[in-house]
Write a protein that binds this DNA or RNA. Structure first.
Lengths: 127, 127
DNA sequence: CGCCTGTCTTGACGTCCGTCTAACCAGAGA
DNA sequence: TCTCTGGTTAGACGGACGTCAAGACAGGCG
């Protein structure tokens, strides 16, 4: 058992992804799109976007599920499912310490996504 | 009819959205998440991510559908459907000029999304 | 050991999404 | 006006997604 550390099909973006040339600078290759799109998709749900924010902005850089769950009008399993989605997208890491499970954000992929969307205010691309 | 300029439920993020405090700085409010999540969701498909990039990185800041369609192994209607999704998410604008339809990126919302994901390398949030 | 609390997994159900074919609409040109 | 080309809409189909209730697992405490 101990499914958490089982070899889930995790996207390890921190490994070999060429750290995202800005989307508006050159065309994103199909392979990069295939790797990065799931991360955007994971953030494409209001609940997960809030979860991600709560985890990333947490005090010690980590958030307990016991703090996350009561923040929504959803059942525990549903929150757990969303957290699993974030985990499989490579956006967060989970660790069990005693009774509670703590989630921690992975800044690297957040930086990749932000870099992909970044637009230098140099070009007069306004309108 | 002229459905294109009909009052589609467009998300006008450029209007009153408070231009995104970084996700990792403070918790994203539910309303902000509800507004921004659809934009991430729209980018959560490899085809749309590439379309977005092709449009945003185009020469004059705009791309013709006739150039976008042959870049994929998909039918015209499917590409049109994806473009509509990007349009309804507020990520692009469409304009018909003569025979062809041109799509243009909206830098403002891209900046909002990038700002939301941005992480200052100041905090030692690295594990 | 046995119970209790916290979290995850399983299975199910309804809805939304990605794709296609067929049909329709808008301009350009003869 | 008729026709051709480019693009969108309508409808349908299979698969994925969001949610839940019920059950299973893990760790702490008596």
């Amino acid at each position: 058992m101990s499914k958490q550390q089982a070899p889930l099909p995790l996207v390890d973006l921190n490994a070999d992804t060429p750290c995202c040339p800005p989307l508006a600078q050159r065309r994103v290759p199909a392979e990069t799109a295939a790797v990065l799109a799931p991360a955007f998709k994971a953030l494409g749900d209001p609940v997960r976007l809030q979860l991600m924010s709560m985890i990333a902005s947490a005090e010690n850089g980590e958030a307990c599920v016991c703090d996350l769950t009561p923040a929504f009008d959803l059942t525990g399993p549903t929150i757990s499912h969303h957290l699993k989605t974030l985990r499989e997208a490579g956006l967060v890491d989970a660790e069990r310490r005693g009774t509670w499970v703590y989630y921690r954000a992975r800044p690297q992929i957040l930086r990749q996504l932000a870099g992909l969307l970044s637009i230098e205010p140099t070009a007069a691309s306004q309108r």
